[in-house]
Design a protein around this nucleic acid. Structure first.
Lengths: 203, 203
DNA sequence: GTCTATAACGAGATAGAC
DNA sequence: GTCTATCTCGTTATAGAC
């Protein structure tokens, strides 16, 4: 059994690898970075990376697992704040806005673009991420419609999908202009179509 | 000066290279295909490709030039049909739906994802494509609002941007599920928020 | 216009020492 | 855990024959 120091070092290196790889995938894509890039940035060798992750496919899966966990935790944190539905949607869009800093694309949106070149394990992780997002949004939308704080036509599930797509696309485009304000503006318009003026105040 | 036959052969090979490369980029990304892929599919050698396009960057630029031209022509064709604004938006979304077949992403959306790894010339082409789309949509939106066939809050330019983003994102996600219906549904919802029931029939 | 041949480099991965 | 050394393969690109 490794002692505390060894275990701590191990964990730390593993997570630093994930940090660097995550950023590289979000900025350059899964096909746009290499073990050499990660190794150079951490002043390690490629061989060392192979100790922590058997190969690029496994690294990618660890990346998605951690990202999905974090996203789920962020959604749970929004739920705990007991906001009304419009405020939850705002907070949800805020998660995307946070990601967009540092010229990053949503990890999952980036992988979605490269979908047909991804190792099998990563493909499943991508759709599961979208599924989880849609399910959370569907819950919020249903709440909001029931309480009257949101107003929209169409089915809850399809509306949730259009929100995921709308935000992913807004990120995608905004990134080409290096202009987060494009995202913010598009997200605001998108959400405004559900939270109309007077919806909360008027009868 | 080359004779007619030579010129015809040249054009044909050049355009067949563009056809194959275009599909490969749309499906696998600019960093997900190689000269070898194109050459194999056309039963040519890589060296022959270099005769037609100096390098991958030049091929990419030719790809974007042709794609942008075609898109502009498609927009002009919509304009010539003298449709009302809602019908123009439907036709616009239809262009995206056409692209989505064959598991393809919008060429420009794909390049937007890979933006930070692209050769300089290609980056400019990406933003010019989005600019042209936004300008066309802005014109349609302004027309529709003026004639009363469209109803939306927010500025015309920002609304145009949210449509481009919304459609690109809907494509991006739908492709991961190999389900064009996801796109159709999200696009319909997006456009429905501008063309509300009764907008055209009611006073 | 297309080919063969090859250069020059980078990517993903492994063996085995320390 | 990390290293050096090495392997194999793919990628972009060029030279020069046909």
């Amino acid at each position: 059994m490794p002692n505390a120091s060894t275990a701590r070092t191990d964990e730390s290196t593993r997570s630093r690898i994930l940090d660097v790889a995550e950023r590289l995938v979000q900025v350059r894509g899964f096909n746009g970075f290499s073990y050499a890039d990660v190794a150079a940035e951490l002043e390690l060798t490629k061989a060392s990376l192979h100790y922590h992750f058997r190969g690029k496919a496994e690294l990618g899966e660890a990346l998605m697992a951690r990202y999905s966990e974090r996203f789920a935790a962020a959604l749970a944190a929004i739920d705990e704040k007991v906001l009304d539905a419009p405020a939850k949607l705002d907070a949800y869009a805020g998660l995307y806005a946070d990601v967009l800093r540092g010229r990053r694309m949503c990890l999952c949106g980036m992988l979605a673009a490269e979908y047909h070149t991804l190792p099998e394990g990563l493909r499943g992780a991508v759709t599961r991420f979208f599924d989880a997002n849609e399910a959370w949004l569907a819950k919020v939308l249903a709440e909001g419609r029931h309480s009257g704080s949101l107003r929209f036509d169409g089915e809850v599930r399809e509306t949730a999908r259009s929100i995921v797509g709308g935000l992913e696309g807004a990120m995608l485009v905004a990134r080409s202009y290096d202009d987060p304000e494009r995202f913010r503006s598009a997200a605001a318009l998108l959400l405004a179509s559900f939270t109309r003026p007077g919806t909360q105040a008027a009868a």
